[in-house]
Write a protein that binds this DNA or RNA. Sequence first.
DNA 1: CCGAATCCAGTACGATACTG
DNA 2: CAGTATCGTACTGGATTCGG
Lengths: 124, 124
Amino acid sequence: MDVTNHPHDLQTTDCQKVSQVLARIGEKWSVLIIMFLAEKPRRFSEIKRAINGISQRMLTLCLRGLERDGLVKRTVFAAMPPHVQYELTPLGISLTTPVVALGSWAFEHMADIDAARAAFDAEN
Amino acid sequence: MDVTNHPHDLQTTDCQKVSQVLARIGEKWSVLIIMFLAEKPRRFSEIKRAINGISQRMLTLCLRGLERDGLVKRTVFAAMPPHVQYELTPLGISLTTPVVALGSWAFEHMADIDAARAAFDAEN
DNA sequence: CCGAATCCAGTACGATACTG
DNA sequence: CAGTATCGTACTGGATTCGG
């Protein structure tokens, strides 16, 4: 099955799995984290500082999820204080292409969407 | 600001707006609906039948959200029984490119992710 | 046929406090 | 520094019922 040629098969098992994959990308912080790690490996607190508004709890959970899916690799350097490095795996790197494409689209059409929302809300 | 060149600016107002746009795409059914409407305009019940598992409620809410963002156009043909058509706007059509890219990536790497999840769960 | 209204469960997310 | 534990809230999403 090829999603680009068979848009009808939205109810198959394959597409259910695709949905599960997309669900992780749909998480609030995943895209931002992936785009930040795309540049180079980072430490836990570097990510936390870079992504304004994320809580420690959600950063931990989100990184665990990305690690579980094989998109991010976690390396612990035994020392005091602890030093934990996160980096994209090859699979994670391959994700950056479509993710950046989506991010760019979102950025380019931000104004259009804002205007459409304002117009829609004005009517109702 | 260009998201492809300034991955550091994840905390700016612009990126907050991008997050809001991505949130709609992150909704459980949005991508499937957009991909289905990409082929041609459809009626409410056609969409419902095509996307297995979606409830009437969520289809209604999701279509409203897409309409609000100017991605989908809703046309009512006054008649009995009612006939309502949904179609992508030009803005919505421009979204299909990155969305299909993401969908294709998800489909191609489904197996990798499944394997990574199984391996991760086996250790913990 | 195309919804709206209501009710309810699961969970994503945040705030705070605590630990090796 | 890099988490874990606990609690509380808000929202997503499903089931069901009702209406034009």
